[in-house]
């Protein structure tokens, strides 16, 4: 039996609801609902490798600023977002830091680093 999965394409304001037909082995056999080729590309990416940039904050130590804004320097699998937050909850940022400095290297073996989104002074 073929399975179906639906996605909303974010390529343009149209927001097509695209239905993906998937065969028993998980292979994609069809698209419907998209009004352009971009929609197929987006949905295929969302099906095979849905990634997001994680942005958050970490607590600081030794700064007058309680939090430091951070981000992943590469998108990571969206299924790893919650687990990543647990890692960030334990991390601490100590000044002085420059924007782009690594706070958590190789987050959960994704190959992405969590980096400072701004400078941090004491």
């Amino acid at each position: 039996m073929a399975k179906e999965k639906t996605y909303i394409c974010i390529g343009c304001p149209l927001g097509c609801e695209v239905t993906l037909t998937i065969d028993k082995k998980g292979g994609v056999v069809g698209f419907s609902g998209n009004k352009c080729k971009e929609g197929e590309k987006y949905v295929l990416e969302e099906y095979t490798n849905p990634v997001r940039t994680l942005t958050a904050t970490v607590l600081t130590e030794g700064s007058s600023q309680p939090l430091l804004a951070v981000r992943s320097n590469k998108p990571i699998l969206k299924t790893k977002l919650a687990q990543s937050m647990a890692v960030l909850a334990k991390a601490r940022a100590k000044p002085p830091l420059k924007m782009g400095d690594i706070i958590v290297p190789n987050l959960l073996d994704t190959g992405a680093d969590i980096v400072a989104s701004s400078d941090l002074s004491s």
């Binding site: 940039t53 942005t55 958050a56 904050t57 804004a69 951070v70 981000r71 924007m99 989104s117 701004s118």
Partner: peptide, 17 residues
């Protein structure tokens, strides 16, 4: 702190800060 800034101006996906 979220991203999505500068996609047009810098052609990069930046956070607000």
């Amino acid at each position: 702190v979220h991203n999505g800034f500068g996609l047009l101006y810098f052609n990069e996906d930046l956070s607000g800060p």
